Computed example of a mutant assay.
Amino acid sequence: MVRLPAPVAGKRISYGPDSLQVGELRLPEGTGPFPVVVLLHGGCWLSEYNAAYMSHLSAALTKAGYATWNLEFRRVGNAGGGFPGTFQDVAQGTDYVRELAKAYPLLPKKVVVLGHSAGGHLALWLAARRNLPRTSPLYSPKPLKLKGVVALAGIPDLAAYSTAPGSCNKAVAQLLGGQPTETPERYAAGSPSQLLPLRVPVRLVQGAQDPIVPVSQAQNFATLAQTKGDDTRVLLLPNTGHFDLVYPASSAWPTIEKAVEDLLGSSRERQQKRL
C-alpha cells in the first residue's frame, strides 16, 4: 500500500474546557461556505488511541471540497471518560459546528458525521440521540440536525458486540460500566440499534475481511433499520480489512468519498449552483 506523507495540520479549536475537548478544523480552498464532515476516531473507546490516525482521511475529504472537524473527546481511561462523558463530549463537539459557523465559512445545516469502528458507533449514536428521553443523562436539547451518517466498520449493537470474542469487545463493558444484564439502561441509551428509527440516511461501509468488527454488525443493523423505514445501506467491500477504511490510498477510498458525496453533494455541484 502507498505510504502517504503526513498531512498539513488543521486549526485546533477547543469546544469545551477539558484539554481533550478539542477538534481539528480543515477548510478547503475557496471562499465557501462549505458543508461539513465531522470525524470520530475509533480505538475501542479507550484512551490509548486518539484522533491523529483520522488526519489522512480528514485531509482527503477537505481536498474533495468538504470542511472537516476531526474531534477528540474523553475516553475510557481519561478523567470523565466512559459513560456518560464520552457520549456528552461527541454531542457537544458536534453541536459546536454552529459556533464554528459564526467564525468560519461553514454550512451548519449541511453536516454529515463519519466515524470509524468505535467512532462509527458514536457517529450512529449522534443521529439517534434525538430519540432519547429527557430523563437520560445523555439527553441534550436541540441536537444539530444531520444530513446523514457514514459509519466505517461501525458498531451499532453494543450488547451483541460486548458478548462476542474479539480485540475490542471487552471494552464495551468498560464504556458502559457493566455487561448488558448489569447496566441495561445504559445499553438502551448508548446503542443505536436500540434507538431506531434514525430518520437520516446511513451508509455502513464494511470490509469483508475485517477481523475486528464482523460484517453482521452492519448487516443486522441495516435490516432492522430498514424495517423501521430508514434509508440505511451496507456497502460491503471485498478484500478489505478494518484499517483500509481510513486510508485514502486504499481501494476503499472511492466508496467512502462517494458515500459522503451522496449525502452532501459534490463540490462541482455546489459550484454550479452558485453560478
Rank of each mutant, 00 (worst) to 15 (best):
G93M: 08
L20H: 08
K110T: 11
G82P: 03
R186P: 01
I256R: 08
T255W: 12
L146S: 01
T183A: 09
G77N: 02
V172I: 13
N131K: 11
L245D: 05
L204S: 05
G42F: 05
V149R: 00
L264K: 04
G178K: 01
W125V: 01
L25N: 03
Y161K: 01
S267Y: 12
L4V: 08
K145H: 09
A52G: 12
A9M: 08
A51N: 09
S267E: 14
L152E: 01
V200G: 00
E24F: 08
R199L: 01
R12F: 14
A173V: 06
G30W: 06
V8K: 14
P192D: 04
V234A: 13
E257G: 14
P35W: 04
L204R: 05
P211A: 08
P180A: 11
Q226V: 12
V8G: 12
S140G: 12
A189V: 09
P141D: 14
N239C: 06
Y247T: 13
L61Y: 05
L236I: 05
Q92S: 15
T31E: 15
F34G: 10
A222R: 00
R26Y: 13
A9S: 14
L152H: 07
H242M: 11
R233P: 05
S267I: 14
K63T: 15
S58M: 04
R203F: 02
L20E: 09
P35E: 03
K258V: 14
A127N: 04
Y49H: 15
Q206C: 02
S162R: 09
P141S: 15
G241T: 04
L264F: 06
L46F: 12
T183Y: 04
E72G: 09
V113Y: 03
K109I: 01
S117N: 07
T181V: 15
L158W: 05
A103R: 15
L57D: 01
S167P: 11
A259H: 06
L224P: 00
A171D: 03
A101V: 12
G30I: 00
K145T: 07
R129C: 05
R203T: 06
W125F: 01
V38Y: 05
